[in-house]
């Protein structure tokens, strides 16, 4: 347990700084790279929680595809590659207040609701750790939503093409 706790804190701190980096950096490409760190950290947390399959999907889709898409977006909108002080708008201060306020409410709520709750990781890994279990759930219990999601992906594909087409 100690080793896992140490791993958690190291990863969590790295994720925290990287997340703040995403929203504070002045270089838009750096923001994308910070995002990679956060996403990888989330994947590591998944592994800590025994959700191995989701972790690898996270790595493949987010780091492999989504971040690349972001980089394409940055290139296509011809964002300045070097530092640019003009990335934030003028409601930075109220935005920070709103976000901190929300965080405060959430933390109070969580401490109140789940103060002493613990996760039994070994049992969790036994119950839900296998990819076979996830596959079973998707293709039995959740097969209809799964098909609907595939339709949604198709719709998003067509939609993206239609929106971005030059005509």
């Amino acid at each position: 347990m100690i080793a896992q706790n140490i791993a958690f804190w190291i990863i969590a701190v790295a994720m925290g700084f990287a997340a703040i980096g995403v929203v504070r950096t002045r270089n838009i490409v750096h923001a994308a790279l910070y995002l990679v760190v956060v996403l990888a950290g989330v994947a590591a947390q998944y592994i800590l929680l025994g959700a191995e399959f989701v972790a690898w999907v996270q790595v493949l889709i987010y780091i492999g595809a989504v971040v690349i898409l972001f980089l394409f977006g940055i290139m296509l909108t011809r964002a300045p590659m070097e530092g640019d002080s003009d990335l934030d708008n003028d409601q930075r201060f109220p935005a920070a207040v709103a976000a901190l306020f929300l965080l405060g409410v959430l933390v109070v709520l969580l401490l109140d609701a789940f103060g002493g709750t613990k996760i039994k990781l070994d049992a969790a890994v036994l119950a839900t750790g296998k990819t076979a279990v996830v596959g079973d759930a998707i293709f039995r219990q959740y097969v209809v939503p799964f098909e609907v999601v595939s339709m949604l992906l198709l719709a998003a594909l067509v939609g993206a093409v239609v929106i971005a087409r030059r005509d």
Binding site: A19, I20, V22, V23, D86, L87, D88, N89, Q91, R92, P94, A95, A96, A98, A99, L100, L102, L103, L106
Partner: peptide, 11 residues
């Protein structure tokens, strides 16, 4: 919440 801040404050 960091994401919320980013959505609100980024141009």
């Amino acid at each position: 919440c960091v994401g919320v801040y980013g959505v609100l404050a980024r141009r």
